[in-house]
Design a binder for these strands. Structure first.
Lengths: 245, 245
DNA sequence: CGCAGCCTTGACCATTATCAACGCTGGTGG
DNA sequence: CCACCAGCGTTGATAATGGTCAAGGCTGCG
């Protein structure tokens, strides 16, 4: 019923993934590994959910009764200002958790970017379960601290990087986080629109478009289609991302 | 030897604080409360550290052997780009943890803003201890998810708010996080320099200075000294912070 | 084939960065 | 005890990055 496996990925940092095959819940663990008994019981409290592209998962301000684990597809989470300005705070993929944060209400909204399947848990059930699964809780803590590190990188990007540096960082980072990406490292799938990229990087769609065009004309990347590109000069892109230009 | 107490604070959201009186370690808990037995053993593996203003706690890239809990003073954590651009990703105060993230090396640097005292733990010891203290681990997970929520707010600020909105948000947020702040809500202590505020908000010192001057001349705040100000019109400041102007 | 939605490109503009000068303040040493 | 200096902060003039507004192109679907 449960299995422990490695993701079929070329990502430099391979991650161990534990999949509850009954309910599909995934619990990545970077430094502690889980065995079957840690995941037993998840299927009893899990509920499968299917979302079409664009459908909402959670809405900022609603009571936080559920938490989710993505099993396929991709999700955007974002916050809005009253006048409609949007900041996408994360793109989430298979294996990621949504709504872990304690707190009365959700602090952000979440929607499917493309068709997605998820596992839904009642938060109370989940908390009760992990209380009896210390290793599962440890894995969640690992995950949370890793997301914190990623959030700090994103703050550096938003606070101090130029438009070109942001795009370069984004293109390098994205494939390391989507387990469903194509197998070659330099091929980048962009399941999101320009508008979503812009709202993730703190830019406008026009700037995103212009920078991509510039990277294309300088030969650093090649646009295969709107949602697919190849990194032709990875070293160059890395230099750009870190401001070494 | 251990006590559970409430912080002497006027903060809207009162936090329960567990203090290990032997070693001074603090473990805030927002939704689960800890009792003495959960903290027992901390003093055996803790080491007290004193830092003078400006001294480094951890350095980005160094092996991550220790983690810290701040017992007094304040700390800045930040990341640098190769050319020296700095993004301060957080100001931390008494009760906050530094270096929780799993991972070979520290992903950011940390320095004391003002004289500070801390508890230092060897990470391996700490992980071994919390493995036997599920409630302590749960408290850490709570804390981590809360910091994630704070990080998302900061991303919204950095990605989508104007300079004036950033400063307003900062002035409203800061006093809710420093347990050592003066007791009145509208009095804000700024232990950090303009340069640090700028690097936290993704601005320059000149812009910080100009916006503060503007808020002063419009009567929203009053500068008592360089490091102390009063919020004269909290509602107005809240509106500005959310872009309702 | 036509339309809607998304993307690109161009011209212009505004916010904020940069560069520069000056002022305040606290600490030190004569 | 006062004067000077260093460091930080403020203010002003100018510049640049990226935003805004506008028009046109591509693409996929009905």
């Amino acid at each position: 019923m449960l299995e422990l496996r490695s993701l079929p990925t070329d990502c430099a940092k391979r991650r161990q993934e534990s999949v509850c095959s009954a309910c599909g819940a995934r619990a990545f663990s970077v430094c502690s590994s889980l065995d079957s008994s840690d995941l037993a019981g998840l299927d009893a409290i899990a509920e499968r959910v299917t979302l079409k592209a664009g459908e909402a998962l959670i809405r900022e301000g609603d009571p936080a009764v559920h938490l989710f684990n993505i099993t396929s597809g991709s999700v955007r989470i974002y916050k809005l200002l009253p006048d409609g300005r949007r900041q996408i705070t994360g793109f989430l993929f298979a294996g990621d958790f949504v709504g872990l944060a304690t707190g009365q209400d959700y602090a952000f909204s979440g929607e499917a970017i493309e068709d997605a399947t998820l596992c839904r848990f009642r938060k109370a059930d989940y908390r009760a379960l992990i209380r009896e699964r210390p290793l599962l809780e440890e894995a969640l803590l690992d995950r949370a601290t890793h997301e914190l590190a990623a959030a700090q990188n994103q703050m550096l990007l938003l606070g101090r990087k130029t438009a070109q540096e942001r795009i370069a960082s984004f293109l390098l980072d994205l494939p390391t986080r989507d387990p469903l990406r194509p197998s070659t490292e330099d091929q980048v799938r962009l399941p999101m629109t320009r508008s979503e990229i812009a709202d993730y990087l703190g830019l406008t769609i026009e700037t995103v478009s212009r920078v991509l065009t510039k990277l294309k004309t300088t030969g650093v990347i090649r646009l295969l289609s709107l949602n697919e590109l190849r990194i032709e000069q990875p070293d160059r892109l890395r230099d750009i991302a870190e401001g070494e230009v």
